Amino acid sequence: MKPTILMAPRLPQRLVERLGETYTLLGPMARSAPEALPEGAEEVEALLTIGTQKTDAALIDALPKLKLICCYGTGFEGVDRVRAKARGIQLSNAADANAASVAEFALGLLLASARQIGAGERFVRAGRWQGNAVERMAFVPGLAGRRLGIYGLGAVGQRIATRAAAFDMQIGYHNRNPRPDLPYLYHDSLLGLAEWSDALIVAVRASAENRHAVNAEVMRALGPQGYLVNISRGIAIDEEALCNALEAKVIAGAALDVYEHEPVVPDRLKVLENVVLTPHIAANAETAQYAQQDLMLANLAAFFAGKPLLSPVAL
């Protein structure tokens, strides 16, 4: 008899088909709440979800046989880990499966913002480009020799650093702890990192201590020639402070792939010319998605075989 598993959000079709070969697959759910559980949920042993979706104590307790929560991506902030631990439930995520994809997208956003790629496209589309005519776009600093600050030097942050080094950038970072094994300049505070940086890329986890860590003071420290990029979670940046900073040219520009209340993007951001906006697609490379799917399948297989998870999350 196939084990029963529950898919909370709709997952990619390729993964759904492969799951159906081995498991009795329930879901997706209309919402992550006990009243939205499908028939047969009392037999569910594993819950498949994403970090941004709520998996609270009420939902966990409504699944009496639940023993594993698998997060499709790297995030797990929506899971009530205290309740999961109390129930003896294991937790897994995608580890660094999408790190390369997110890192390359971060550099793409930095280029789009600092090198004015979006503004250049709008310039051409508006018919304003007249070859070597008097009206030209203003010069901007290049990336070579500039200082890149990385807030969060985990799997993604490290890959951002290696890619930025290929652009001949100087690399600094702020982390919970210094990494003496890596050749980058450690700053003991985010504010200090921002003061040092010409561009700041946010690559931290969505945890309570990181909420609005990039605030008005940090943006003032980054300064009027500085650029801010976020590919982590929207809560890391104070969006109201960011709007103020962009409108007042406290910083030169920003590029965002994530937002505090997704899919809502503040109207103030949408009308600004000095910000690049994308719809949370940094991990959307095919290689990254397939790697995440394969890892979820491998974690499920290990769990039901009584073996250690491949990418466990400590509770």
Rank of each mutant, 00 (worst) to 15 (best):
R14S: 12
R14D: 15
Y23Q: 09
L25A: 02
L26A: 13
A30P: 13
G40C: 04
A41Q: 03
E42V: 04
E45T: 14
E45R: 15
L48K: 01
L63K: 06
L66I: 02
K67I: 00
Y72N: 05
Y72A: 02
G73H: 01
T74N: 10
F76V: 01
V82F: 02
R83Q: 10
K85L: 03
R87E: 03
A100D: 13
L109T: 08
L111C: 13
R115T: 01
R115K: 08
Q116V: 12
Q116I: 03
G118H: 06
R128T: 03
W129M: 00
R136S: 09
A138Q: 07
F139D: 12
G145W: 03
G149Y: 11
V156Y: 03
Q158W: 01
Q158I: 03
R159Q: 07
I160N: 13
A161W: 15
I171V: 08
Y173H: 06
R179P: 08
P183W: 07
L185S: 09
H187Y: 11
L190W: 07
W196E: 05
A206Q: 06
N210V: 09
A213V: 15
V218H: 11
M219S: 06
G223Y: 05
G223Q: 12
L228M: 09
N230E: 03
D238A: 14
G253V: 14
A255I: 12
P263K: 10
K270P: 12
L272I: 06
A283F: 13
Q292P: 12
L297M: 08
F304E: 00
P308H: 00
P308F: 00
